[in-house]
Amino acid sequence: MEELLQQVTNGLAIGGVYALVALGYTMVYGVLRLINFAHGELFTLGAYLGFTFLTSAALGPRLGTGWGLLLLALLVAGLVAVSGALLERAAYRPLREAPRLSAVVSALGASIFLQNALMLGWGARFQVYPDEALPTSAVTLGGTRVPVVRLAVILVSLALMAALWLFVNRTKLGTAIRAVALDRDAARLCGIDVDQVVRAVFLVGPALGGVAGLMVGLTYGQIGFTMGWSYGMKAFTAAILGGIGNVPGAMLGGFLLGLAESLGSAYVSSAWKDAIAFVVLIVVLLVRPTGILGERVAEKA
C-alpha cells in the first residue's frame, strides 16, 4: 500500500511533466499539423536556464525559495517562450506552405541544432542543481512520507493546465486557437488571424514546456543536454495517446503515461521502463486509431 502510494504520486508527478510538454506538441500540431521535434529541446532549455539562475551567485540565493521559485518559474517560462517564438520564425514559418515532410525534416534539424547548441553552451556532462535549491522536506500522506516537491509538481502542473484550459476555452484568442485547430482555412475565412494564433501557440507551448524542464531539474536534480529527446518523445506519445491536436487529450495522455510508466516499472519490470510508453501507445491505437479523445475520422470519398 505504501509502495503503491509512492508509485502513484511519482507517476502523477512525471505524468504532469509529460502532460505539460505534450500540450506544447499538441497545440502546435493542432494549428500547423507539424510535429515540433525541437519542443523537447525547449523543455531542456528550461531545465538549463533554471540551473543557471539557481547557480548564479547574485540570483541563486533569492530564487531558491518560496516566492523566489515563482519568480524563477516566470523567468524561465518567459525566456523559453521567446525562444519558441524565434524557432517558429526561423525554422517553420518559411515552410508553412511546403510539403509536410520538409517541415518534419526542418523540425528534426532544429532539434539537432538546439540540442548541440545546449551542449556547446552548458557542456556535454550532466549538470546538477545546487543542493540548497532542492526542497528535501516531505509530508506524511496516508502513513507514507511523500516528498513535498513531488506534490508541488503535481499541483503546479494541474494549476497550469487549469489556466490553459481557461485560456483556450474562455478567451477570444483561445477560441481562435481551437477554431484554427478544427479547420485552418475555414477559420481564416471567418476572419481569424492565423499568424497571430501560430505566434500565440509558439509562446504558450514553450512556456509550459520550459516550466516542465525546470520542475524536472528541481525534482531529480540531474539534467543533461539529451534529455529533451526521451522526455520529448514520451510527451509526444502522450499527445498522440490522448488524440493529437486535442488539449484535454494531451493532459489525460500525460498522466496516463506517467502512471503506466511508474506502476509498470515498479510492478512489471524496471528494465523495460522506457518501452512501457510505446507499448501502451500501440495497444491504445489498436483499439482507437486516433487516440483516446481523438475525433473519429470517417473515410470520405
Binding site: 526542418s106 534539424g109 541544432f113 548541440n116 547548441a117
Partner: peptide, 8 residues
C-alpha cells in the same frame, strides 16, 4: 550543430 542548421 552545423548539420542541424544545414537540414533547416
Amino acid at each position: 550543430l552545423v548539420f542541424g542548421l544545414a537540414l533547416m
